[in-house]
Write a protein that binds this DNA or RNA. Structure first.
Lengths: 210, 210
DNA sequence: CCTTACATGTGTATAAGTTCACAAGGCACC
DNA sequence: GGTGCCTTGTGAACTTATACACATGTAAGG
């Protein structure tokens, strides 16, 4: 990996953001993009775009702009999206089921390799995507066998922490948590929390002040 | 609304975060919470908690702590979560269906009052929650009739912007967008974007550097 | 080959947000 | 009623992140 003295966390988040319009631009055949245009598409400032990219190298050509294909390739390499990642998911309720069927993930190299639940009713059922729901006591075994590095939690909040512990114990080093509770982890394991209602409350606040 | 000179945006996001453990504490019967304890539960610093709250008033008692019920009440009032909000949702795929069935929303006062899709196959179908899927050309009418203020977008990315325009035109002033594309709006309309794969790419980056 | 135009890359300035450290205030016990 | 303990509330220091403005380098055209 390239020399990266200290990258701001928001920069990483924005890199992922930049890749969305770039993918669309490749589809539409545009070979070139300007920082100004990309900035507008992502809702940030042009200087921000250039600074973010400059942390990792010189990907553009002065006086010209950025080659779309090259830039996307570089961003994907930085983020590690140029390879595939095996995921597992715990909690096959409505949300969990929706996620494993989601094409967006697969398209970006995130492959659900195992799905778990504790409900005996669900265990053994095959889902439209072809996965069979496994009992949680097989987490360790399947994480090892499928080389799963990332875990997704879509359980009720009350059991989310236990599940996180199971995942960490199984060797998972990154967790995407959809349960509305902050799960604790060790230094070895990164967590990203996604809480829909937090977002909604944000919106409600802004509505209230209008 | 109280005098609020200039509230940092992260503060609002954290207020919503604080409310989660507080709800749990009420269930478990603890009457009192210390900034240090709440901070730990939310993964922030105690000073941060106190500063965030101090923007809106003095809710605690020095030397004692915060009364859980009072604090939650105040936070809910600030965020506007002490009343109910009517939502509509556009795009009844797997994710959309999962969201309308989600109990988390209803519990916090967010009520799905209308669901839309453009697929003739889906229109007219009744969902487990009792809602009937309506055609998108009824958005304006139903938004008006049900006094809907917040719209949720769970469509494919290609039509997300059009849908956003429809919603804005119908008078919606806040949008929660799950499509992996940044939708543009007017000043009158706030948008919150939730992009799962951005979160995943974040995780992938951190895994890569480990 | 030199000049002009233009967009990137970057050091510096500005702004925003977080942590620190302590003053202010309330409760309990003596 | 006074004293000591404890936690909040908060101004100031510090850290982080964003915006500015210009120097740098490339391509095209005369």
């Amino acid at each position: 990996m390239a020399k990266t003295p200290k990258i701001p966390d928001p920069t990483i988040e924005r890199l992922a953001l930049y890749s969305r319009p770039l993918e669309a631009l490749i589809e539409s055949g545009s070979p070139l993009i300007l920082s100004e245009k990309l900035a507008e598409l992502c809702g940030v400032s042009p200087a921000q775009v250039r600074k973010d990219l400059a942390y990792f190298g010189e990907f553009g050509v002065r006086g010209v702009g950025y080659d779309v294909r090259t830039l996307l390739k570089e961003i994907k390499h930085i983020l590690g999206t140029d390879r595939q990642w095996a995921l597992c998911i715990v909690g096959m309720g409505n949300l969990g089921s929706a996620l494993v069927e989601n094409e967006n993930f697969r398209k970006r190299g995130y492959i659900f390799s195992a799905a778990f639940d504790s409900d005996p009713e669900k265990i053994g059922k095959e889902m439209p995507c072809g996965l069979t729901i496994e009992p949680v006591n097989r987490i360790k075994e399947l994480v090892r066998d499928f080389h799963i590095r990332i875990g997704v939690i879509t359980t009720p909040p009350l059991v989310a922490q236990q599940v996180a512990n199971l995942l960490i114990d199984a060797g998972i080093r990154a967790i995407l948590n959809f349960a509305p509770i902050r799960v604790r982890t060790t230094d070895r394991c990164t967590v990203e929390n996604v809480d829909f209602s937090v977002k909604l409350e944000n919106l409600a606040y802004h509505l209230g002040t209008l």
